[in-house]
Design a protein around this nucleic acid. Structure first.
Lengths: 337, 337
DNA sequence: CGAATAAATTAAAACGTTTTCAATTTTTTC
DNA sequence: GAAAAAATTGAAAACGTTTTAATTTATTCG
C-alpha cells in the first residue's frame, strides 16, 4: 500500500497523511487519530527508501566489527540495542579483518561516502588515529568509544582505565607484592597505553622499579593469558601478582597457576578488568576474581544515547564522558607471601 | 556531486553514465573506462537512497540479535562478513530482549514491512516457529540457521546436532559410563531437542535407561554449567560423565568438579559441543576438552553465501544444508572408574 | 458582522537515481 | 555507396515519500 492510495482511502491528501504520521503539529488532533488508526488497520508503512531519499537521513548508525574482540563487541551492541529499541534507528555492522589498516580506512570511506549511515561509532581508537581524522574531514558525525590524541574535535565516551589499573596495582603493592606482572590488551591502542600508565604510575608512586619484562600485550583470550602467565611464572624470582586485561585473560592465568600447582589468592594474586559478560562471572570463578569493573553493555547503551544527541545537533566537543571504574575485591587477591 | 553534474562533466547523459557504472553491456568499452576513471577522480558515488528507491533493493541482510547468545552471534556475524566483504551488502543488526516473543514478531514485521532489508536470517528456530510462518507469508526471502518443523517451505543451514551428540554419548557409553548427564541448551529450541534426541537414542540403542533427572536445559554459560554439574554431582549415585552444550558450559562443569575434588578425565568425563571461539580453545583447557566441533564462523560465511543465492532467485526448497560434526577426543574423556 | 488572524489542508515541486523506449550513430552487408 | 543491422546514446518517466508555498476553513476581535 502506498501513500497515495492510503490517503485516498482516508479522503485526505498525501501531505496531510504524511504529516499526521510523522507527528507534525499543524494537523488537527482528530485527523491525526483517524490516520494513525487507519495506518494500523490497513497496515500502511512509508517506504523507507523514499523517506530516506527525501529526508537525506538514513536512520542507521554504523559500527565496524574487528576480529579478536567479538565478545566485547557483542555486549556493546546489545547495549546499544537497549537504547535504540523504540527509535526506528538501525545498527549497521560491517565486519572487518582487523589486520589490514588500509582496508579499514576504505570501509570507513565507503560507509561515509555512500551515505549508508547517519553516524559512526569508532572503537579501539589509537593515540594517532587516521579514522578519526577521516571522519572529521568528511563531516560525518561520530562517537569514539575510548580516547585518542588525534588533533581534531571529537565526541567520546571512555572509562577511566588509567585510574582503575593504578588503583588495582596500588592495592596489590599495599598487600606487599613487589613483583607484579601486567597482561595488557593489544599494543598501540589507547586504552592499553592508559592502563600501562596506570600500572607504571602506581609502581613509581610507591617506589617500586618498573620492569618491562613483567609487561605483556595481546588479545583478550584465555590462551594469551595462559601463555604469558606460564612463562612469567617460570622466571625466577617469579611475580607474585598479576594484573590482567580481562576476565578471559584471568582464566588463562588461573590455568597457568594451576598447572604449576600454585594457588590463586594465596601463592599468587590476580586482579583483572571485568567488562561484565553474562556468560563469565567473576564471582563464579574459583577462586572468585577480584576485578576492576565497568559494564560494556552499559557503555553501549550510553554510546547510543550520545550518538542520538550528536545527531540532534549537540556539538561533539560537548560530548566527553569519562566513567569511573569500581574496584571489587574478592578471593583472588591476598597478601604477598 | 550528483549524477547530473557528473554526467555534464563527461559530456554524456545521466543514462549512459549510470549504465557505465553499473556494468551494463550496451555501453562502449572506451566510454565505460572514461566514466569509471572520472568517477574515481571526481569522487562521484551514486546516492544510495536514490538507488534503493528506484531499484527496490536495499542492499542489506537483516539479523536479530537475541540476548544470551551474544558470543555465538558475534562469531556468526564475523563469518558473514567474510563472505559479504566485496558485495556492497550490509548487515543490519536489530538487538532484542529475548524474553518477549511478541516483541520479536513485531520487530520482524517492522523489518519486513518497512523494507529495511532484502533478506533475513532467522536463528534459534523452534519446532513451531511463528517467525518462519510470518516471513513466508510476507514473502520476505529468509534463511533459517537451524531447522524447524513449521509447515512452510524455507531455506536452511544446520549442523547435525542429533548425530553429533549421539556419537558423543555412544562414545561415553563405550567407555563404560552408565550415568551420563546432559547439560543442553535452552529448552524449546529445535537444536536442543535434536541434541536431546541424539542423547536419548544413544542410550536406548545401547540398552541404558533414560533418566530425565540427568538432563538439564539452560543458556550456554559458565554459571549454568557450574550449577547443574554441582547439583548433579552431589546426587548419589553421581553421574560419571557429562555431555555439555558448549565450551562455556564445560568450563562450569570443570569448576564444579574441582570444587568437589574430582578430576576431570579421571573421576568424571566431559564432552562438550564446541562452536570454535577464538578466545576459548578446547585444546587449551586443563585438561584439554573432548568436543563435537563445528565452526560458528564458517556457518556464518556459508549462510551469507546461501542468502546471496536466495536473492539471486534460487528457490528456498533447494537450499537445505546439513553439516556433519567432528568428534575430537582429548583428555577430558576416559574410561569409567 | 466582517476583517484579520490562526489553523488545517492541499497541489506541486523536490530528492537522485534507474530504466523504458526511442533516437541516433556506427558498423556490416551486398 | 546505400540499405540494413547492430551498437551506442539519450529524453523522459518512474520510484514513494517529504516539504514549500499556496489555499481553504475556522476562529477571534473590534
Amino acid at each position: 500500500m502506498k501513500l497515495k492510495e492510503f490517503a485516498k482511502h482516508l479522503d485526505l491528501s498525501p501531505t496531510t497523511v504524511s504529516r499526521a504520521l510523522s507527528g507534525y503539529p499543524e494537523v488537527r488532533e482528530s485527523t491525526r487519530k483517524r490516520v494513525a488508526d487507519a495506518a494500523i488497520r490497513l497496515g500502511y508503512r512509508p517506504n523507507i527508501n523514499a523517506v530516506r531519499l527525501v529526508t537525506g537521513r538514513v536512520g542507521a548508525i554504523g559500527i565496524l566489527m574487528g576480529r579478536g574482540r567479538e565478545v566485547h563487541f557483542a555486549e556493546f551492541l546489545s547495549g546499544m540495542g537497549e537504547r535504540l529499541g523504540g527509535e526506528d534507528i538501525d545498527i549497521l555492522v560491517t565486519p572487518i579483518a582487523e589486520h589490514d589498516a588500509r582496508e579499514e580506512i576504505q570501509l570507513y570511506s565507503r560507509l561515509v561516502e555512500s551515505r549508508r549511515v547517519d553516524a559512526i561509532i569508532v572503537n579501539g581508537p589509537r593515540p594517532d588515529d587516521e579514522r578519526i581524522r577521516l571522519l572529521h574531514k568528511l563531516g560525518m558525525p561520530f562517537l569514539v568509544h575510548g580516547r585518542s590524541e588525534t588533533d581534531v574535535p571529537y565526541a567520546w565516551l571512555d572509562i577511566d582505565n588509567e585510574g582503575a589499573i593504578k588503583r588495582a596495582t596500588a592495592h596489590l603493592i599495599d598487600l606487599g607484592h613487589k613483583r607484579i606482572a601486567m597482561i595488557n590488551g593489544r599494543p598501540g591502542v589507547t586504552f592499553s597505553m592508559h592502563r600501562d600508565k596506570g600500572y607504571r604510575d602506581a609502581l613509581v608512586e610507591r617506589g617500586l622499579p618498573f620492569d618491562p619484562r613483567l609487561v605483556a600485550h595481546g588479545n583478550f583470550t584465555d590462551e594469551v593469558g595462559f601463555r604469558y602467565a606460564r612463562s612469567l611464572l617460570e622466571q625466577s624470582p617469579r611475580p607474585t601478582a598479576f594484573v590482567a586485561g580481562s576476565t578471559m585473560t584471568a582464566l588463562g592465568v588461573y590455568r597457568a597457576a594451576r598447572s604449576l600447582d600454585l594457588v590463586v589468592g594465596k601463592d599468587i594474586s590476580v586482579i583483572a578488568h571485568d567488562d561484565v559478560f553474562p556468560y563469565l562471572n567473576a564471582d563464579n570463578m574459583a577462586p572468585s576474581l577480584s576485578t576492576t569493573r565497568s559494564s560494556m553493555r552499559a557503555a553501549g547503551t550510553r554510546a547510543a544515547e550520545l550518538v542520538l544527541q550528536l545527531l540532534s545537533g549537540k556539538p561533539p566537543m560537548e560530548i566527553h564522558e569519562l566513567w569511573p571504574v569500581e574496584l571489587i575485591l574478592r578471593e583472588s587477591t591476598g597478601p604477598a607471601l
